[in-house]
Structure formats: structure tokens, C-alpha cells
Amino acid sequence: MDIPYTTTPREDTGLYNAKVGIWLFLASEVMLFGALFSSYILLRVGADWWPAPRSILNIPIGTFNTAVLIISSVTVVLAWASLKMNQLSKFKLYQGITILCALIFVGVKSVEYTEKWKHYEIWLNDGSNYSGHIDVNGKHNPFFYTHNKLVSEGVTEITFTKDPHKYGDPLPEKAAGGGEAHAAEAHAHESMVIKTEDIKRLSAFVPAHSTYFAIYFTMTGLHALHVIGGALVMFYLWITAGSWFRSRPEQFTNRIEVSGLFWHFVDLVWIFLFPILYLM
């Protein structure tokens, strides 16, 4: 006996196996991200510090990435529809665009990440507190420094270039467009030399900075892993499309439908992540 309903639907459920499987998997994904969203709410409600709305991430870049994912969601469903209409070349085009969108998304995200890892907040023993960029021993904008790392490397002082508007503070009236853009304005950037012993805490905008960045990196990181995973699967289906579709068209169309469902889910998660992390 062979396993039935791998391609054709079962009469009483009207479903083929893989479709049941992917929906069950997505149900568990809903619980996974649901738990993270719950954590987001609780961390935010109980937070000592939470960035003011729109002050923290680059909104134009975030909007661009949202649009990229939405476009990929349209092309992925068009790719499936092309197969249903027996148009393999159109399928290849749409599937290719989807994969390209995935690459763009991950690329933009990694640029966003590295920007954060070079950007610092410093708390001094006198109670003052700034955001900006640092120079350590002639290294401009180094990654991942902390107070402990300065001490262990025997660094006695660093140069700190202050942002004109402290990152994460409420935006001044009429200053739309995100803190980063604001910071890039042509104000004079004030540089100062700070002794290591005067520093209470130094942290780049990495997960350890605060619970906001912890949940930001965890959620978007997990989401990015989903994007990469989905892109790998779609790439595999893209390069094997020709022979597979010619020999087993119905099975291949099902595979595209199932991978498409996963892709839409990834898009759907981002639709929530974008406003709660960038805008609110």
C-alpha cells in the first residue's frame, strides 16, 4: 500500500495531505508568534524605558521593506495562479521576483541591524545620558562595546560623538520621519572625550541594551529566519520547476500552493511587526 492523498484531495475532508500539514504547522507558528506578541505587550507595559513612538527605527526603510514583502506576497500567489493556468514561464518570472524580494528584505534588514550595532547609548556616573557614536583607540564606530569590555581591554578613555537629538526620546513637534533621519540633520555633532571610570554603563543598540531592543531583535530575527527558510524552499522549487512540472504538474502546483501559504504567513507576521516596532 502507498500513502494516499499525497496529491489528490480526500473525499470527506476535501484536502490533500500537505495542505493539512502546512495549516497545522502555521497554527503552531501562530502560537509561537502569539507568545512573542504577548511578551511584547507585557514587557512594554512593565518597562522602565521604552522608546517614544516613531523615534527609534528608520521608518522610510521599514515602510520600504513592508512594501517589498507585500509585493512578494502578490507575486507568490500569481506564481501559483500561473501554474494553475499551465503557464510555466510566467510562473518562473513571478517566483523569481518573490525570491528577489526576499533577498532585498533580508539585505535591507541586515543593513538596519548593523547600523544599530554601531550606535551607542552611554550613562555616566554623574547621571547624564546620551546617544551617539564612539571612537575607541582610533577605531571609528566599532561594534559591541560595553563598559566591561573597555575595562578588560584597558581602555582609559573614548571619544563620544553625541546625537543632536537623543535617540529614542520623544520627537520634537513636526519632526516626522524617524529619529535616524533626524539625527542625520546638519546640526553640529558635539564630540567629547569620556574617561572609562566615569562611565556607568555603555551599550550599543544591541539586544542587551533594553527590553525594547531585546524583543525587537528577537522578533525580527526570528521573522528573518522564516524569510530565509521560505526563500530557500522557494528557490529549490524554482530551479526544479521545469522537470517537476512537466512530469507531475498537479503535485508541483500543490507544493507551490503550500510554500505560498507559508510565505503569506511570514508577510502577515510582518504586517503586525512593522507598526508595533517602528511606529508606536
Binding site: P53, R54, I59, T63, T66, A67, I70, I71, S73, V74, V77, L78, A81, A176, I271, F274, P275, L279, M280
Partner: peptide, 21 residues
């Protein structure tokens, strides 16, 4: 329908960003 929904989603994104301001 798919193209139309895609359009709505893009407009929706614009509205989200605008509404936040």
C-alpha cells in the same frame, strides 16, 4: 482580485505610516 488586494495592502501601509504621525 490578487492585484487589487495587493494595491489595498500598499495603500494600507501608507495609511499606517500616515496615521502614526
Amino acid at each position: 482580485t490578487y492585484l487589487l488586494i495587493g494595491g489595498f495592502l500598499l495603500i494600507g501601509t501608507a495609511i499606517t505610516v500616515w496615521a502614526a504621525t
